[in-house]
């Protein structure tokens, strides 16, 4: 079912998990600095799934409408990174990052822009760290704020055709003191996966050396 060239070995999967971990740790650290509260992270989940299933995995997680900050990246491997949380969490997050210095009206007024900036900081630090670990550089687009369900966020064409496989990666995060939760998700298409696999092998070789 999964083409040979993108099936990750156990070690490659370990390596990818670790690299994502570093990126996400960095992102969590950024978020912590922005809101001054402890941020809890889960172990990253990595799956190779169809585009459609990725969208459904996100949809299934939430009853409420979602809000997401999306940033596409391009380079040796390309894809899309999303910071997703229930829409009901949105204002609380904005309040948290603006540090209580804004009035309620200002919070509402700044919501969109504040979300974009928060997503920018989190996704950038995550992606940049991963790029550094793999010793490659990535170009990142300006963050976009989206609202909708899983399908709209992943731009899944409901009428079909979107059956291509993607690498789907997600990490839960929660800020308990603020009752904020969400996740970081990443999608990569197949040609990118093949390149990523090579880069992971390079990384493993450099780290593991003779033990591999």
């Amino acid at each position: 079912m999964i083409p040979e060239q993108v099936a990750l070995t156990e070690l490659e999967r370990d390596a990818l998990t670790e690299i994502v971990n570093i990126g996400v740790s960095r992102a969590a650290s950024s978020l912590r600095k922005m809101i001054g509260e402890q941020v809890l992270l889960s172990v990253p989940s990595i799956e190779v799934v169809s585009h459609r299933r990725a969208a459904r995995l996100i949809s299934e997680r939430e009853v409420a409408e979602l809000i997401a900050v999306r940033q596409d990246f391009r380079g040796p491997f390309s894809g899309r990174a999303l910071l997703i949380f229930p829409e009901t969490n949105s204002l609380e997050l904005v309040r948290a990052v603006t540090g209580g210095e804004l009035s309620a009206e200002e919070v509402v007024e700044m919501e969109h822009e504040a979300l974009a900036e928060t997503g920018n900081v989190i996704l950038n630090s995550c992606l940049a760290t991963m790029a550094n670990m793999l010793k490659r550089s990535l170009t990142m687009t300006i963050p976009e704020v989206l609202r909708g369900n899983g399908a709209t966020l992943f731009e899944v064409d409901e009428s079909g055709a979107e059956e291509g496989l993607v690498l789907f990666l997600y990490i839960d995060f929660a800020v308990r003191m603020r009752d904020i939760r969400g996740y970081i998700a990443m999608l990569m298409d197949i040609p990118s996966l093949a390149t990523l696999k090579e880069l992971l092998d390079e990384f493993i070789a450099s780290v593991v050396g003779d033990d591999a």
């Binding site: 156990e10 070690l11 370990d14 390596a15 670790e18 690299i19 971990n21 570093i22 740790s25 960095r26 969590a28 650290s29 992270l41 760290t129 550094n132 670990m133 990384f203 493993i204 780290v207 593991v208 050396g209 033990d211 591999a212």
Partner: peptide, 26 residues
């Protein structure tokens, strides 16, 4: 650190430690 780790587990732990040295949190 890796010297007495079972050879089968060593690559995995090397990767994880590499992550920590690069700033992974846990």
């Amino acid at each position: 650190f890796f010297r007495s780790i079972h050879p089968e587990d060593r690559p995995r732990i090397r990767i994880a430690v590499a992550g920590m040295l690069a700033g992974a949190s846990l």
